[in-house]
Simulated assay, not measured.
Amino acid sequence: MPPFVEEQPIQTEDSFEKLVAPQAAPWKYEILYPAVLGIGYIHLAAIYGLYLAVTAAQWYTLVFSAFTAVAAGIGVTAGAHRLWSHRAYKAKPPLQMLLMIMQSISFQYSAITWAKMHRTHHRYSDTDADPHNAARGFFFSHIGYLLVKSHPEFRKRINLVDLSDLYSNRILMLQHKYTILFSVTFCLLLPTAIPMYLWGESLSVAWHVSMLRYAYTLHATFLINSFAHMFGSSPYDKSIKPTQNAFVSLMIFGEGFHNYHHVFPWDYRASELGNNWLNLSTLFIDFFAWVGWAYDLKTVPDDVISARAERTGDGTNSWGFKTRTKI
């Protein structure tokens, strides 16, 4: 059996043997010019979209764009991340279909590909097998990894990830088979057409404001890979790079409590703060648990959290403030 086959949903970072030796070893970057052009266009269009949002867009368009940004974000956080990458809870088919469509709005691969990369990231976090290895610097972990050919160590290790649970999911396989169709339709075509045909927005404004929303959701995800692996505190495990970062949590629905998440990745809340106003994705899951579409929500007992903080933390609380002195 190959190493690192994920057979149980509950794993901790220190349960994986570190097979990937030198972090950020010398490596020649091979630029992917189509990716540079594509991402470059998205950002240029987003800048123009910001100008149009201030000068020309109708309020309906701005509210609709904000709504689709939130939907895309929850599709990633509650769907691709907590449900399908970490199996932190279970969802009935109607909720899975809804989350699949919301994740398609983000245009961040299919949910299966997203989960495959994310499971690899957790197993080999901040090593050469991590797709967005933070040891290579802020730009690389934030967006640069998309602009160059991936590291050979990553290409080798990603094939060891077990995705049998996802490949047996008909809803995810439908999206995976028609990734471009789903993503283009829900991320680009409908968000452009709806403002045009429902309240008479111009094509240019509708398209470029959609590009602004798309760029925002991309960078919201990127912040977790970069900011939350470099800046902040480590109240649960000071030996790993992921941190608690309040700024990232404010930007991305409570996802910035990243030191906690890497220590307890199976917790459906992705935060020790639980069900509060900041953790929008948790509130979304809680609502559908109340409806009956989400169930088997996994959490970590408070005494386990406290014991781990006492044993391996840096003596800070969730917000980075010192609470005790380590002896």
Rank of each mutant, 00 (worst) to 15 (best):
P3Q: 11
V5L: 15
E6I: 15
E7S: 14
S15V: 03
E17L: 13
V20M: 14
P26E: 04
P26S: 08
K28T: 15
P34H: 14
I39P: 07
I39W: 12
A45R: 00
I47P: 03
L52Q: 11
A57S: 13
T61G: 10
V63N: 06
A69E: 04
A69Q: 12
A71I: 08
A78P: 00
G79M: 09
H81Q: 03
W84C: 06
S85G: 03
R87E: 08
K90I: 04
Q96Y: 00
L99I: 03
L99R: 02
M100G: 07
S106P: 07
S110D: 09
S110E: 13
I112Q: 04
M117T: 12
R119C: 00
H132C: 08
N133A: 03
G137T: 04
I143R: 03
L146G: 08
S150R: 09
E153L: 15
N159R: 15
S168P: 03
I171E: 08
M173P: 09
H176R: 06
Y178L: 13
I180L: 14
L181M: 14
T185H: 12
L188M: 10
L189V: 15
L189Q: 13
P191M: 10
S204A: 15
H219C: 12
A220R: 01
T221Q: 03
M230P: 14
G232W: 03
P235G: 00
K241C: 05
P242R: 00
Q244W: 07
N245V: 00
A246W: 04
V248G: 05
I252D: 15
G256E: 15
Y260S: 03
H262Q: 04
V263S: 07
W266L: 06
Y268H: 04
S271M: 04
E272H: 01
N276F: 01
N276W: 01
L280E: 08
L280C: 02
S281V: 02
S281R: 00
F284S: 06
F287V: 07
F287M: 11
W290Q: 11
G292W: 05
W293V: 06
W293F: 11
K298P: 01
V300H: 00
P301M: 02
V304W: 01
I305V: 05
T312F: 10
T312E: 14
G313S: 02
G320Y: 01
